[in-house]
Write a protein that binds this DNA or RNA. Sequence first.
DNA 1: GAAGTAGAACTTACACTGTAAGGTTGGAGC
DNA 2: GCTCCAACCTTACAGTGTAAGTTCTACTTC
Lengths: 232, 232
Amino acid sequence: MIKKAKARRKAPPAPRKRRAAGHGGRGLSRERIAAVAMALVDRDGLAQFSTRRLGEELGCEAMSIYHHFPSKAHLMDALVDLMLAEAQVAMEPQWDWSERLRRAAHGFRAMALKHPAFFPFFAVHRLNTAAGVAYIDGIIGILRDAGFSNREAAVYFRELGYYLTGAALDETAGYARGPSSAEPVPDETIATNFKHLAAAAPYFQPAHFDATFETGLEILLAGIERSNQRQD
Amino acid sequence: MIKKAKARRKAPPAPRKRRAAGHGGRGLSRERIAAVAMALVDRDGLAQFSTRRLGEELGCEAMSIYHHFPSKAHLMDALVDLMLAEAQVAMEPQWDWSERLRRAAHGFRAMALKHPAFFPFFAVHRLNTAAGVAYIDGIIGILRDAGFSNREAAVYFRELGYYLTGAALDETAGYARGPSSAEPVPDETIATNFKHLAAAAPYFQPAHFDATFETGLEILLAGIERSNQRQD
DNA sequence: GAAGTAGAACTTACACTGTAAGGTTGGAGC
DNA sequence: GCTCCAACCTTACAGTGTAAGTTCTACTTC
């Protein structure tokens, strides 16, 4: 049943691109594919990312990737887990629980800002990968160690998560960063018709991101701390 | 230069689907296209939404949509503005500023929950459509009326927005709703390896969404209120 | 060395996507 | 009867993820 596949070709076989394939060479592997994919997303953005472009970058055909990942979704999972590996939950017991939460929050934000192009994907997907559930479990563990009930831990985990996700999303896909509307409202229109926004506009610049993030985080942590004192 | 276009056809011209085209008929219009598009996204989800599917639903060819919208991005803008039209900022002066913010927050959340399939798109796009800047301007206006400086208004607008976006995103694309990982961690693994998460899992169910949202919102509003008293 | 084998990579093809370019139609205004 | 034009349709193209089938290559085992 072997078809005359070769005979069908118009051009000569084209010498296959060399790859070492040995230990540590340029051969493919889950790790290398994921790392190159992340670099590609970082560089060109999510919208440009495709298996074919990734193949080019890896020096292989697109379909070779499927030998290592059953689908693009599986590859994206690997990128999510790469992200999470960078946002390790602070497990050091020398800090009290609120300081550990603060550090975890900063780690999360740093992770997002390190991969701003990928974060919007991260944000709209459930965190039920291996590294994802481990991450969640770690944060809840901090809250439980602090003496919060399971219900309280779940609630405060969520409220912090809401804030962290929204903040990271705004800094990576929001004002002046993410995909714009097809016909953005011109600045002149804002200046004349939306005085409040125009007046506050300077404070929407990236220079104010850090301070905004910090004060909001402190409001939340203080609110959680207050409820803790009331309980005990 | 008129080609023999007709002669090229294999099948007879196919009687054109009737559309009234008159006032109020089944003819196309920006409004009808946007409304049907939103209904389609609500029903089948963002991933299934395409111009061809929309054309089917409208009873026209995909390309006819382009007579009313220059690109799909423009159409998506219209959907964003449809969403915002449902989340009107509470302008009623009978409420004090914190109550107006609370009502705006509830309006935002209700909007997201009314179109859970579309919200993830909404969340990762800049809000620089016509309705978008008007919305932002309205919220900032509330804060300015309350006596906050431009800087404070920008900061608190953002912090509230972070929370609202994150909350809505989690309720529409998070736990048990949004796109899952390709190979989700099975429940048994969570039960055995991630005790904290397993114990808190019941409180992650939708039944707790309302209460979680409310308490977090109150923490933020109280924090903002406290800073206001300190200032004045 | 030769032969066999299994894994890794490649090739082709298909059903989708958004949309550029141009063709057709029916009705309004003269 | 004529022109004009908005509205809609047709075709085609470059891009996507990926199923299915094919070929190469390194590593055994004689």
